[in-house]
Amino acid sequence: MKVRGIGIGSMVYGVGYGFSRPDFASAEVEIAPDGTVTIWSGASELGQGIRTVLSQIVAQEFGAAYEDIRVISADTDKTPDSGPVSASRSTYVQGNAVLAACKDLKQELISLASELMGVESNLVEIQNGQIAAKDKIGKIISFSKLASEMHVQGRRTHGFGWHNNRTLDVDKNTSQGDAYSSYAWASQLVEVEVDTQTGRVKILRLASATDVGKAINPQLIEGQIEGGAVQGLGFALMEEMQVEQGVFNNANLSTYLIPTAADVPPIDSLIVEVSDPSGPYGAKGMAEPATIPTTPAILNAIADAISKRVRYSLASPENVLKVLGKIDGSGKEGFLLLEDIPYPVA
């Protein structure tokens, strides 16, 4: 028999390091005479797309063409220290540092533009990729022309930015306090089909509502959501380190299985944007939130389908059959008794 069920998983994730731990990033930008821009960032590109996001930020701030931005990444001889790529902080902290580097140069750009256009500098704005005079139609300078003029006139063309994601520590005994500057939010829905004869769980659909604050690049966001969901799916259904007496017995890819293309369900990426004023353009961290809700959503969907709970986190066919009572339920997924685990005293 095959039965279907729906499950939801939600989560909150404190972004960055929190607890007053160092959580900073720095960045440099330089405008070349032809209107191309170079970014130096210590941020590591792991595949998440931070180089692309930083380029988009500079393009937006200067009105430069995205293709004209080059990023030099993570080299202790060349780039400033941007902190690690972890804790879903890249866009949030390292993006803010690049934004700060752009702001460092923006006054130079604007004051020169105001001289060239003959308008007060407070009337100059960078909008839709143009440096324009507010309320004066036709007074427009392209960024590349302005870049050239900066060099002709010997203006400062190198900007530096530092962003400190400052947080407070919490009380040592109660952990009360403002531990994080930003929180990320996500909820996922999963529909499963459980074969009660074989214990096999098939994911029929997955919808991921992820609050990213602002999607700077929606395709990259979707990539994180889809990839994150599949990592979560792998954890819930097939990936398990089999460790006995300290020996990791399946430490190779023929016995430690991760999802293939055949395991992937339809995924609907539902991008939610609740702006965070502390992030660049309102953006929040989202790489980890994309993977966290998947396993609980799957486990809840299985429970919805079979009215029994796989309380060990791996819903392998064997473990599903055990909770269905079809095979002997002893073993490591058999649960500890409550009294095995006393709560520490208050």
């Binding site: 979707e222 889809e226 994150g228 991760i258 293939t260 995924i267």
Partner: peptide, 20 residues
């Protein structure tokens, strides 16, 4: 057929959908 064609190629980042 596409899924079968790439089922021997593991990807840990994308979740395969955009590759398909």
């Amino acid at each position: 057929e596409i899924v079968e064609g790439i089922s021997g190629n593991l990807c840990r980042c994308t979740g395969y959908r955009k590759i398909i």
